[in-house]
Design a protein around this nucleic acid. Sequence first.
DNA 1: CCTCCGCCTTAACCCGGGTCAAGCCAAGGT
DNA 2: ACCTTGGCTTGACCCGGGTTAAGGCGGAGG
Lengths: 195, 195
Amino acid sequence: MRFPKLFERLASLTPLPPEEWAKAEAVAKEQSLAKRELFMRPGDAADRFAVVLQGVFRGVRMSPRGGESIKAFRAEGELIGAYAEMLQQLPSMTAIEALEPSRVLVFQTRDFQALERGHVCWERLARRVAEQHFVLKERREQEFLDLSAEERLVKFWEEHPHLKGRIPQRDVAAYLGITEVALSRIVSRRRKRAE
Amino acid sequence: MRFPKLFERLASLTPLPPEEWAKAEAVAKEQSLAKRELFMRPGDAADRFAVVLQGVFRGVRMSPRGGESIKAFRAEGELIGAYAEMLQQLPSMTAIEALEPSRVLVFQTRDFQALERGHVCWERLARRVAEQHFVLKERREQEFLDLSAEERLVKFWEEHPHLKGRIPQRDVAAYLGITEVALSRIVSRRRKRAE
DNA sequence: CCTCCGCCTTAACCCGGGTCAAGCCAAGGT
DNA sequence: ACCTTGGCTTGACCCGGGTTAAGGCGGAGG
């Protein structure tokens, strides 16, 4: 078993026989990415995904109007991939970029589907993953609906302390749905208020 | 088979043996709700969900600060329930209210889990449902990130033409994340611009 | 018929965030 | 040591949406 920690993590979501995990490891490939290198770019087929072994990524949605907004940051142990596009069988509209030198474990969707046919545990795992993603998105939706930008900022750092110092401020702004200028003002406002 | 249309709809997501569907119908109960009646209220256990047979519902999240925001509208053929809370085994933080006299088909989560143990098709169906919900939430997230309130309004009516005339304007506003005053202004602005 | 109520609109005022532009600072490259 | 470069800050100005408050209007009930 090459990735025991990852196995632990997944097995905590749903029972996962070690021999099934061995099959998964057999089809997965490690990939290293330099800082700023893209794991996926807009227009790519959404036919693979990966687990972050080391590093941090940002998922950037390119809007038709040229605006960039950040869908999520992903660090060690988390999944990267154009999940929504994969489910809809659309080409990726998302760029996934390494913010640090990173290593990931890549799976082809096709290979994963083969695993699913072999054992129900993969079906269950996929379900858990979908459910978790849903819960996260719903939480974020709610934050947009009833929190101010400043409150969203506070919550962001409460929920992602491990990202401190690893992501540029402008990306935090794009994640919160404001500009870096506005974020800078909020931060200085808070500095002042705290004397 | 009491609900052939519903069966069709679900079977289009994943193969669903009619005999399994029969078991589901056996545990489901019909319920009628008057206008303004609540299918679920905040604090209730999130241990049941339903399919709308007739009518429209709104899912309202009560924020601690007394604000109400609308998570979704649900009409015929769609699911209602505190899905996120169910997944997290939390009590509902959502009120689900009938906006018209309505009929729904209610399932106890417990009963559905029993079905899952009996046949994998339910596991698959649950996965598809989770995935669909995820895709919808992600779409909405993206709208908050790079659309103005006016653009969100236009998109809302494009995507929900069947709700025209069935939901009060103030609820549309709460769904878009603005006040009814702001919505009224946007509408009149658009009226003027169109001469 | 009139009144009340629910729902929507309009107006005045304020404030947060967008936009544009200038400037600061630290890290790297030459 | 110098000049880029990237990332952050600050200021001035504008605009959209929040807030509050005052009507308008149509439907239900007395």
